[in-house]
Amino acid sequence: ESFERTINIAKGNSSLGMTVSANKDGLGMIVRSIIHGGAISRDGRIAIGDCILSINEESTISVTNAQARAMLRRHSLIGPDIKITYVP
């Protein structure tokens, strides 16, 4: 059984350190890789294959690959914290 989780990740000045791609069925974006030493890796809660539904409350539903990457990059630049809703 999968259910949504919303977490805050304190990334400070470091990068999030993950790559994503659009989910084929349009439901959010899938975590493709996690870079060791990045904020996601240090936090430890998000794993490869998890589905991200929103970043800082901006929905990732029906985004393209390019939009998913641009959204991740944009939110990575805002502030020291990032809020991610995902399904493990």
Rank of each mutant, 00 (worst) to 15 (best):
N8S: 14
S41C: 12
L16S: 01
V31W: 01
T60F: 14
N65I: 09
D43E: 02
T60A: 12
D50A: 01
V20M: 14
I61C: 13
R69D: 14
I46W: 00
A10K: 15
I52M: 01
S62A: 14
P88N: 05
I52N: 01
I61D: 11
V63Q: 09
T6L: 03
Y86V: 03
I82M: 11
H36L: 10
V20D: 00
T6G: 03
R45D: 03
I30E: 11
I61T: 12
A70L: 10
I30Y: 07
I9L: 06
H75R: 06
N13W: 07
Y86S: 00
M29S: 01
A10Q: 14
N65V: 09
L77Y: 10
A66Y: 09
A70G: 08
T19K: 11
S76V: 06
T60Y: 13
G79P: 05
I84V: 08
V20K: 03
V20C: 14
N56D: 06
S33F: 03
M18L: 11
I30H: 07
E58W: 05
C51K: 13
N65W: 04
E4W: 08
A68F: 11
T60V: 15
M18W: 06
L77D: 14
L16F: 05
D25F: 10
C51G: 04
I48R: 08
I7S: 00
N13Q: 12
M18E: 01
S15Y: 12
G79E: 08
G17H: 02
N13S: 12
S21E: 14
T85L: 05
I82S: 06
R42C: 09
S21G: 11
N23W: 02
S33G: 10
I55A: 00
L77F: 10
N8M: 14
S76Q: 10
N56A: 05
S14G: 13
I46N: 00
C51Y: 07
E57W: 06
N65A: 11
A39D: 06
D25M: 08
N56T: 03
I55T: 03
A22N: 10
E4C: 11
T6K: 05
D25W: 07
S2D: 12
A47E: 12
T64C: 06
I61G: 15
I48F: 01
H75Q: 11
T60L: 15
I55F: 06
S21Q: 12
T19D: 12
R32T: 14
R69P: 07
L27G: 15
G49D: 05
E58P: 00
L27E: 14
I78M: 14
A10S: 13
A70N: 11
A68N: 00
S59F: 01
I30S: 08
I34R: 01
V87W: 07
I84A: 01
I7A: 05
L72S: 03
M29N: 05
I30N: 06
R32L: 07
V31I: 04
F3R: 10
S59N: 06
S15R: 11
K11V: 15
R69E: 14
T85R: 12
I82K: 01
P88I: 00
S62M: 10
D81E: 13
G49R: 02
M29A: 08
K11M: 14
S2P: 08
S14D: 13
A68T: 04
H36V: 13
V20N: 00
S15I: 11
L77R: 13
G49A: 02
R69T: 14
I52A: 00
G44N: 07
K24G: 11
I78F: 13
R32F: 03
L77T: 13
I48N: 07
S54E: 09
A47G: 14
G38K: 09
S33C: 05
I82P: 03
L53D: 02
R42N: 10
D43C: 00
G17L: 00
N13F: 09
I61R: 15
M18S: 02
A47L: 07
C51D: 03
N8R: 12
Y86T: 02
E57K: 10
V87E: 06
E58K: 06
L77W: 08
I55H: 00
C51H: 10
S21V: 12
G38I: 04
I40S: 04
G44D: 04
I7K: 02
A10N: 15
I46T: 02
I48A: 09
S76C: 09
I30A: 05
F3K: 10
I46S: 03
G26K: 06
R69A: 14
R74A: 08
P88L: 03
K83P: 04
I35S: 13
S21T: 13
I78D: 14
I78W: 09
I40N: 01
G26I: 03
L16K: 00
D43G: 02
E57D: 15
H75T: 10
D81S: 12
P88F: 04
I84W: 03
S76A: 13
N23G: 12
G28K: 00
N8Q: 13
G12C: 03
S2W: 06
I34Q: 03
P88Y: 06
T6Q: 07
T60I: 15
N13E: 11
P80S: 15
G12V: 09
G26Q: 07
L72A: 05
Q67P: 03
R73Y: 14
L72K: 04
G28Y: 04
S14M: 15
V87F: 06
L16C: 03
R45F: 05
I9R: 00
D81Y: 11
I35D: 15
V87D: 04
S62Q: 14
M18N: 03
N23D: 15
G49I: 04
